[in-house]
Design a protein around this nucleic acid. Sequence first.
DNA 1: TAGCTTTCCCCATAATATGGGAAACAGGGT
DNA 2: ACCCTGTTTCCCATATTATGGGGAAAGCTA
Lengths: 295, 295
Amino acid sequence: MAPSRATPNPAILAGMSSEALAPQPAPIAPRRPRAPGPAPNGAGSLARMLEVLDLFTAETPLLRVDDLQARLGYTKSTAYRYVKTLCDAGLLAQPAQGCYALGPRIVELERLMRIADPLLQAGEAVLPSLAAEVPNSMVLLCSLYRDKVLCVHREGPEAIQAGGRSITILRARGLPLPLFQGAASLAILAWLPPHRIRALFLLRQAAMAAAGLGADWAAVRQRLAGIRREGFVATAGRFNRHLAAVSVPVLSRDGSQVAGSLTRIMALSDYAGQEPALLARALQGGAGQVSARLA
Amino acid sequence: MAPSRATPNPAILAGMSSEALAPQPAPIAPRRPRAPGPAPNGAGSLARMLEVLDLFTAETPLLRVDDLQARLGYTKSTAYRYVKTLCDAGLLAQPAQGCYALGPRIVELERLMRIADPLLQAGEAVLPSLAAEVPNSMVLLCSLYRDKVLCVHREGPEAIQAGGRSITILRARGLPLPLFQGAASLAILAWLPPHRIRALFLLRQAAMAAAGLGADWAAVRQRLAGIRREGFVATAGRFNRHLAAVSVPVLSRDGSQVAGSLTRIMALSDYAGQEPALLARALQGGAGQVSARLA
DNA sequence: TAGCTTTCCCCATAATATGGGAAACAGGGT
DNA sequence: ACCCTGTTTCCCATATTATGGGGAAAGCTA
């Protein structure tokens, strides 16, 4: 600080009475106790802080501290402390004063993931030729994380001509897919080890039923066994009225577990003329190549 | 938990003596106090938890809990609690038992940033034609976040033929650049509002000097003023012995502040035959188009 | 199923996150 | 250049809760 910004006497500037400058005996208000209970929220303060990230969406990428305070029920102090901690970690950033957004660390970490992800590496090498095999179609590489299926890579055109219109899937990487719906997810689910499927069922039976996977354990089990017997999943007009999808699992190199799924998306009109099993065969070839390239 | 996990009586199951069930005077080992001091680490526990993310690198994308425990000095309990909290938030994931990696939430959040970032939107529209103007060259769009410059988008070939070899810049998005070195960073720095430059200088004078920006405030100020007068930054052989770069600032639509920088990277041999100011002029045209497209 | 590692749970206490208010700061206007 | 307004940090006592150790449960491998 070269010229040393030296004007720290706001008390006088603010016109406070001289009394206020005398040593105050006990003017500090004691902390207002929160309502008793095991935990005010579902978790500890560490998890509470991370909830801040959930508030950022494509519709509201910029938030003010007031919004956080209101939406999460914190006080101003706490909201600012969370924001400051997250900013220091780079997970948030301030594009402008009073304005917060997701931060650079996220982009940086995502790059690390791209560099380190063997599935992505393998997919980038194999998918281009696979996508080119069928005109007006794109190929998606998806992956399962605990209880979330994400599109990891897309190859082929950004848009598909279908139903007289151009249907675009923009910025596919990172697109979250419903766990129990869609060819890409089912192709992963069906090849999960039995105890994983069972655990998922016990935990999210309602969601499975709602997605039409099956009302009880027997139905779900049977449905997934059917998919495994076929070797692929084909859906038509579910994700979009004018689109169809065929998906096959990508297994780890030793074939012991499922690493993700490979999905071709095409116009429903193009799909109608073809044999699903034939489309699946081509995908299975690609999936085998991807598997072979996995570290 | 279909059969309702209702067996919360570990004392009996474990075969403890009935004495142990009586009110225990003080059998529980008191918490071992940590070394006294204002704070064991530089920050509170919230920031401490986020340090876990720093341990994941391109070289070590997979970590075991023992590693975290050892590298951050936590106990097993704490390490597992952090990991669980971060996993629940999706910032970490377990590809396999005993194995942790960066999680799906990061990819998902990064997608949100791509969707919402006006600079990226504008860049994707403008850069392709700009990159094609000069063969064997790529164009980088970079942005400043508080104290970090990141490449946000790359257009053009992935590799440049220079010095008889092919020099590749892979996965440019998310690539961190040194704040005080390189054309892309300097083109942003120089157009920062004076008080921001001054704040940076006060905070990181040593780093500026080490990067050759200037030993004292006068030198730094003069150097940046010189860049502003020129209107661009050109470097040759700094980032890589066989490459040269020309960079210009991208201003906000109203021109009041700098939003990022636009940089062309080319082979040093190609650069040598050209007039830097002419290259800069073309970039300035592109930067103007990007600015015009900013929301 | 047994045997192993990994993960979670329990609890008292020490560490620290919290909340209220005021100081310091930054940006925009005149 | 200055004030003025809204934003951000600092301060401190106390209540909340994160911590650490040991042991139970869960998950995977053989």
